[in-house]
């Protein structure tokens, strides 16, 4: 599936300041809830502030929540992250549940990821533990002693056993006694 038709910015996974390695730090620094005291589009926001805001604040003591009434303007949720990113969500005609959902999402994010496409779903700094393949990895050291051109090594190895040899082998196998002839798993 090609991505050339997409106008999204491609990016790899980034974590601001090695977040999970030591302790986890909530990346949302502060949230500003801007709303109008009178306008109908801010009704959900006003209800949210009256009912569910205190619960949200108690659950997340690491986020500073500011409430800013602005007349004759649409309600907005503006989030600021620790890495300096800001993200604003137009909360016009949102219900209080929608606003709570958005706040929870913003709290669990580490930066504004709208318009960014993750190229890979894994990020490693050590892609190889056993050592990447080199042409020398499975190369037999005996090949260092061989004088090229070597006619024996040019073609495939064809193992032609004569009938006498096969009979001898069968006899050897019988002679051994408890022989388990099984195929490799």
């Amino acid at each position: 599936m090609s991505n050339s038709h997409l106008f999204l910015k491609p990016a790899f996974i980034t974590t601001p300041g090695q977040n999970g390695v030591g302790r986890y730090v909530c990346q949302l620094q502060r949230v500003v809830l801007k709303f109008c005291k009178n306008n109908g589009s801010s009704r959900g926001m006003r209800e949210f502030i009256e009912t569910k805001l205190m619960d949200f604040v108690k659950e997340s003591p690491e986020v500073a929540v500011y409430v800013k009434p602005r007349r004759h303007r649409t309600p907005i949720i503006k989030a600021e992250y620790l890495n300096g990113d800001t993200q604003w969500v137009n909360a016009r005609n949102f219900t209080e549940d929608e606003i709570l959902k958005w706040l929870k999402l913003l709290k669990s994010q580490s930066s504004d990821r709208t318009g960014i496409r993750l190229r890979k779903l894994i990020h490693t700094d050590f892609p190889s533990v056993q050592g990447p393949w080199t042409p020398y990895t499975f190369r037999d050291p005996q090949l260092n002693k061989v004088e090229f051109p070597c006619p024996e090594l040019t073609g495939p190895f064809i193992n032609e056993t004569s009938a006498t040899e096969e009979l001898l082998e069968l006899y050897k196998r019988q002679k051994l006694g408890n022989v388990e002839e099984s195929r490799a798993e």
């Binding site: 502060r30 003591p61 690491e62």
Partner: peptide, 8 residues
């Protein structure tokens, strides 16, 4: 206050 909670 939020800073202290964020760091833990």
């Amino acid at each position: 206050h939020c800073f202290q909670n964020r760091i833990g």
